[in-house]
């Protein structure tokens, strides 16, 4: 068993090396809940000093991994120590090429992990369930769901390789901004699937308004 002091930031937050900022954020939230002063689950397990040390290390991990430049410097350090391989590194920068689709899809794993993480939230969150109870969905409805899940359009864009402007168009109901109806449907499905929703259901309930 490794001691806390010996864990790298990824181990500390229980993250994969290619974790997206969204995952970093989620993991940090979960971990601080676990170690926080008034966490019932860890009540009495740590002394005050131990708790403070852990929380400080979590903060350091979080601020490093959330800052693209600092993260890539930290990754470089891990690469030099032979802990991280270049190919498994988070590729945030490369995705900002502005392409509609990126030929390389380095983060299918990340996308999959995020989807699995969001699905249980979707099925248990009352706000989301209320939105989904209706048989039509507007762009605003989708945004409401996304806000509940706490994921940004930029992140979805990185994950599904659809430009942010098109995702905005979906949420703003500005269909004319997408290249064509077929593209709109494709983007919509990618967006829905990415945040743990049923792609077919979302596409049909959303597009219903246009067809009608």
């Amino acid at each position: 068993m490794k001691k806390l002091e010996d864990l790298n930031f990824y181990e500390l937050l229980e993250l994969a090396f290619d974790a997206s900022p969204f995952e970093v954020h989620q993991a940090y939230k979960e971990m601080t809940q676990l170690y926080h002063d008034d966490s019932l689950a860890s009540y009495s397990f740590f002394s005050r000093e131990e708790r403070e040390k852990i929380l400080a290390k979590l903060d350091e991990a979080y601020s490093t991994l959330m800052d693209e430049k600092r993260r890539s410097r930290y990754d470089q350090l891990l690469i030099e120590r032979g802990i991280l391989e270049k190919s498994t590194q988070y590729q945030g920068e490369r995705m900002k090429l502005g392409l509609m689709y990126d030929a390389k899809r380095p983060s299918t794993n990340t996308a999959l992990r995020i989807r699995e993480r969001l699905k249980p939230i979707v099925s248990s969150n009352p706000v989301i369930q209320e939105v989904l109870a209706s048989d039509v969905l507007s762009g605003r409805d989708l945004k409401k769901i996304r806000d509940e899940l706490g994921i940004s359009l930029e992140e979805i864009s990185e994950l599904v390789k659809v430009r942010v402007v098109y995702l905005h168009a979906i949420e703003d109901d500005q269909f004319e901004k997408t290249p064509s109806r077929i593209f709109l449907k494709g983007f919509l499905r990618a967006y829905a699937q990415c945040i743990g929703l049923d792609a077919d259901m979302v596409a049909s309930r959303y597009l219903k308004r246009i067809h009608d």
């Binding site: 806390l4 019932l40 860890s42």
Partner: peptide, 18 residues
């Protein structure tokens, strides 16, 4: 009550006591 408390207790024990 938070239904996850039990799983979290086990996590603490595994992480910190092995």
């Amino acid at each position: 009550d938070n239904p996850k408390i039990g799983a979290l207790v086990c996590k603490i024990v595994e992480k910190h006591l092995g």
